[in-house]
Design a binder for these strands. Structure first.
Lengths: 150, 150
DNA sequence: CAATCAATGATGAAAATTGACCAGAAAGAC
DNA sequence: GTCTTTCTGGTCAATTTTCATCATTGATTG
């Protein structure tokens, strides 16, 4: 585990919001020389603190107007049932996130689809076809007042 | 709304995974000249299809070992109650995402905290203190077999 | 078939990246 | 206290990238 000082936190805070900021601008923002800044960023990347960089795409602007979170409960909690479910989720392009959680359900999914019919296809053809699944609850996203996903 | 062709989709697919790739490398990847590639990227940014770029930070490596999703139900569904709740979420640094959803709850939150005590503080002092909140259910994230958040 | 419009590729100047090298501060050993 | 050792920052220059401009290609329309 690497030690993260105040300057590192400053850098991370900036990069979390502006992942494509130039090293020069970043250096100026955190009041450091470009080379020192670069060294820190590289160290943070090497340590895995920065796992990568992503462009944030707007689903609506890409014709993916339908976003929902689903809670999924499994019939059995065997390792093989979980593995099979996770494999199906990995293969499903509509599934952007699949979190294994504690509580009265096993999984929480984020699903993005073009529209309601497309979502229905996923719901019935993919999820509904899985023998491990026992309960599905859909929470359609109306809006996201805050979204700092990183 | 801008039209997005196959090349654009290629570009987006690459940028979604490697947000900091150089324009030169991106151009090579999608088999286009650098200038044409840059123009497309700029158009996508201007159209809002690319909403921004983010560094993906590893919560665990930053001492934020505790990640949970919470479903939150409100007592009343007035506009003012929602606004007050959303404002509180915007102010809470532990809250990384706040989605307004349909279903038997109003909100779905993603919360990241250093550990269980830190989470408890958020749960009781912040969420518990809000008069609008009626129900809270916590789903602690054990693992994320898939996470393509963008 | 000519004209027009859109998109591409080429070019080059300006800017950014990135690593080598050096200086100074902090920590530890004696 | 002094001498190392280590760590972090700054400077600078070579390399690479960005990005605006311009000519060309190709498709579409009248």
């Amino acid at each position: 585990m690497m030690k993260i000082d105040q300057k590192d936190r400053q850098i991370l805070r900036v990069l979390a919001r502006e992942g494509r900021i130039s090293n020069l601008a970043l250096a100026e923002r955190v009041a450091l020389s470009p080379s020192a800044t670069l060294r820190r960023v590289q160290a943070l990347e090497a340590a895995g603190v920065i796992a990568g960089y992503r462009a944030m795409l707007d689903p609506a602007k890409m014709g993916q107007g339908f976003v929902a979170y689903l809670s999924v409960g499994l019939k059995t909690h065997t390792k093989s049932a979980q593995a099979a479910f996770e494999q199906a989720m990995a293969a499903a392009s509509e599934v952007r996130e699949c979190h294994n959680v504690t509580g009265n359900v096993e999984y929480l999914l984020r699903v993005e689809a073009a529209d309601l019919p497309a979502y229905k296809r996923f719901h019935t053809d993919i999820l509904g076809a899985l023998p491990q699944v026992s309960t599905i609850t859909t929470y359609v996203v109306i809006g996201s007042p805050k979204d700092e996903r990183k």
